[in-house]
């Protein structure tokens, strides 16, 4: 890859990671004033804030690489469903509290592997963002782990809901570990992460945790993919409609 191509690919990666963070942050922010008790409203807001902050860092870097006058908000507010390249698992509606915590667990566990690698990127900006995000993720993971154990090992109802969430989310996890050509090239260039390498450890950790929580990992192998190519579930359109509504209603305004 030429330096130019590499830069273009890095820009695309930064946007993907920004989309991941923004979409999940958006979903998490929906819990504020809806959590099971006040302490959780506050805790969920903290995690949401981390992801919004992360989105801003990735988009900010994308803007720097694009160097065409676009800023973070142009990426967040003026691209449509097909142009967003986040993983599908992140755009699913927040569901109940078990669904949210199981999704967090699957994603936090993935992120902790991913960020640990990205910290070593030879792209200094990505490495710096990853180092900061890694600290946040360590805390997120601690929370989601504990919640999944608590809910799995709580009442009959909480166990049922948690197991069900796991079943509903499982098919969306496969694409996390299926890098496309661009991501593989970036990994080879020492900039990105080859996510195929993350799966074994992810699965292992998850199995141990499921045992502790009295849950079982789904054995069936249905899989839905497409996030990285902009082939989304119907949920993303609604999410973006809401997220972008005010910004788009007043084109060209400052806020």
């Amino acid at each position: 890859m030429s330096e130019d191509d590499l830069q273009q690919a890095t820009l695309e990666l930064a946007l993907r990671l920004g989309d991941d963070a923004l979409v999940l942050g958006q979903r998490l922010s929906e819990w504020v004033s809806n959590a099971p008790y006040l302490e959780e409203d506050i805790a969920c807001a903290n995690v949401a804030l981390d992801f919004i902050g992360r989105a801003r860092m990735y988009y900010g870097y994308a803007a720097e690489l694009a160097a065409d006058g676009r800023c973070e908000d142009d990426f967040a507010y003026l691209r449509s469903e097909r142009e967003f390249h986040n993983y599908l698992i992140l755009e699913l509606p927040r569901g109940d509290f078990a669904f949210t915590q199981v999704r967090q667990l699957l994603v936090d566990l993935y992120n902790s592997g991913f960020l640990a690698q990205l910290c070593r990127s030879r792209d200094a900006t990505l490495a710096a963002i990853a180092a900061k995000a890694m600290k946040e993720t360590r805390y997120h993971l601690r929370r989601s782990r504990e919640w999944v154990v608590r809910l799995g090992d709580g009442t009959e109802e909480s166990k049922r809901r948690t197991q069900q969430a796991l079943e509903e989310l499982w098919g969306y996890t496969h694409e996390l570990f299926e890098p496309d050509t661009l991501e593989q090239q970036l990994a080879q260039a020492g900039i990105g992460v080859d996510t195929r390498m993350l799966k074994a450890h992810w699965q292992q950790e998850l199995e141990a945790l499921a045992r502790e929580a009295g849950l079982h990992l789904p054995q069936n192998d249905w899989a839905v993919r497409g996030g990285r190519t902009g082939y989304h579930t119907e949920n993303l359109g609604h999410l973006l409609m809401e997220l972008q509504s005010i910004h788009r209603a007043y084109p060209g305004c400052q806020w």
């Binding site: 008790y37 006040l38 302490e39 506050i42 805790a43 903290n46 601690r142 929370r143 504990e146 608590r150």
Partner: peptide, 20 residues
């Protein structure tokens, strides 16, 4: 003060609620 399940969770909530 705050409400939590146990000491471990209380520590985390204290971090979230009192050290923002």
């Amino acid at each position: 003060s705050l409400h939590a399940q146990d000491h471990a969770q209380a520590l985390e909530y204290a971090r979230d609620c009192y050290t923002r």
